[in-house]
Design a protein around this nucleic acid. Structure first.
Lengths: 122, 122
DNA sequence: ACAATACTGAAGTCACGACTTCACTATCCA
DNA sequence: TGGATAGTGAAGTCGTGACTTCAGTATTGT
């Protein structure tokens, strides 16, 4: 008798969607290499480990971080876990950058207004 | 007799413009806090240290990293060093994200072409 | 000239995290 | 059924880096 769903044993990691996690995740060169590799298409855990010259265990640990930050999604079918890029982490990143940008721009606007209408708040 | 330019003693740090540095820099929560703080306008070294509850020395060390990654620019006038946001680091970040995005999209395009014209490469 | 301020530089401490090894489970295929 | 393959989990090692302290230098104000 076999189980109805031969799926992943580990409960699927749910990303928490905050910029801190994403920056932490991408702060590590190995994890960045993983992300860049996955840009060319899905790869298995050992498929990632080999070119990086680290153990599969190490890769699995990195994948955990990458999943938690919403940069990578993995799914296990049979005995092989396949890793894909996930877009949400990138969106969070862009969001953060956008927030910063608008902050400076707001400042510039205030400065500009102050300079063009100097007697407004005299 | 006073010197003609009372400028910075330290030679101005020149950022190296690669994504690795930026991610490394923003991977640390304290440095992110510094960047976010500078979004509201220029601050001195001790002005940064106080709310973060760390020593000015620690801040100076972070500033070094932030300058090297092109996220912050600092200038010393007299005895106070004033820190500003620098946009170049952010551009590098966006560049990297864009590169990744176009990678996946290229993949999708190939996949789409393959699916719509299946007898092209038979 | 003196004291207070603002920072710099060197050197040390300490925790965290990136890796390893080893023992184990689950799946595939012959 | 058994041996190879793919990955998981726990536990340990070790370097890096985020902080500190302390001892200095330059600038400012009185």
């Amino acid at each position: 008798m076999r189980a109805s769903r031969p799926k992943s044993s580990r409960s699927p990691r749910k990303p928490r969607l905050d910029a801190a996690r994403v920056f932490y995740a991408l702060g590590d060169p190995t994890r960045r290499a993983i992300v860049e590799r996955l840009g060319n298409g899905p790869v298995s855990v050992s498929g990632l480990a080999t070119p990086l010259e680290i153990t599969v265990t190490a890769v699995a640990q990195h994948l955990r971080v990458l999943e938690d930050s919403g940069l990578v999604r993995t799914a296990k079918t049979g005995r092989v876990r396949t890793c894909h890029i996930e877009t949400t982490g990138f969106s969070v990143l862009e969001q953060w950058i956008g927030d910063q940008r608008s902050l400076w721009e707001r400042r510039f606007d205030r400065l500009g207004a102050l300079l063009s209408e100097p007697d407004e708040n005299a």
